[in-house]
Simulated scan of single mutants.
Amino acid sequence: MTSTTPKSPVAAVSGVLSFVLVVGGASGLLHEWFGWIHFMGFVRFLVPDGYEIYSYVVMVVLGLAVGAAGDALTRRGRA
């Protein structure tokens, strides 16, 4: 049975933030490793010089954590 209740604004924002962090971090890693173009090039402004790989890995992990927290908020609201 599917719930028809809309997502809370916090869960929706966390979903968008999670997407931006995961995709931006992954595209940054691909750019650093293989020289591919940045899909989300604006995230390079969040990265300090000399710490690109570490910063992009942190972005991906943080994005996954934010996504899990948003999912937990959505599930808690349905219960």
Rank of each mutant, 00 (worst) to 15 (best):
A69C: 11
L64I: 13
H38T: 02
G50H: 14
I37F: 09
A72H: 15
V16F: 15
V23G: 03
M59Q: 10
T5G: 03
L46V: 05
E32R: 00
T4C: 00
P48C: 01
L64K: 03
G67M: 07
A68R: 14
I53S: 08
V23L: 05
Y51T: 10
V60P: 00
D49N: 13
G77F: 08
P6R: 12
R44Q: 13
W36F: 08
L30T: 08
G25V: 02
A26F: 15
G24H: 13
G28E: 08
S55E: 03
L21G: 00
Y54T: 02
W33S: 08
S18V: 06
T5H: 09
L30F: 09
D71Y: 13
M1L: 04
G35V: 05
R75M: 06
H38Q: 05
A12P: 09
R44W: 04
G35N: 09
G35F: 06
M40L: 15
G41H: 04
A68C: 09
P48G: 06
A68N: 10
L62F: 04
R44L: 02
A69G: 09
G50S: 11
Y51V: 08
I53G: 04
K7R: 13
G50L: 09
R75D: 07
G67E: 15
V57K: 02
G70E: 13
S14R: 10
D71L: 12
G67Q: 12
I53M: 08
V66F: 06
I37N: 04
G77S: 14
V16R: 10
V16N: 03
A26V: 15
W36N: 00
V22P: 11
G70I: 04
G63A: 00
S27E: 13
I37E: 06
G25L: 02
I37R: 02
D71E: 14
L17Q: 03
L17G: 12
A26L: 15
P9A: 04
L21Q: 10
F34N: 03
V58R: 01
T5A: 10
T74S: 10
A65E: 05
V16C: 09
L46W: 14
E52N: 03
P6M: 12
G25H: 01
A68P: 15
T2E: 07
S27R: 04
T4R: 08
A65V: 14
G25W: 14
F19K: 05
V66H: 11
R78M: 00
M59K: 02
G77D: 14
P6D: 03
I53C: 00
A79L: 12
M1K: 10
G24N: 11
L21W: 05
F39K: 01
L73C: 05
G15D: 11
G70V: 10
H31Q: 12
M1E: 05
S27H: 11
E32W: 11
V66W: 08
V58W: 04
F42Y: 13
S55T: 11
V16A: 13
G41N: 07
G50K: 07
V23C: 10
A68D: 14
G70T: 09
A79K: 07
A69K: 05
V20E: 12
A12G: 14
S14M: 14
T74H: 11
R44S: 06
A12V: 12
F42L: 11
L62K: 01
G77T: 09
H31P: 00
P9H: 05
V58Y: 07
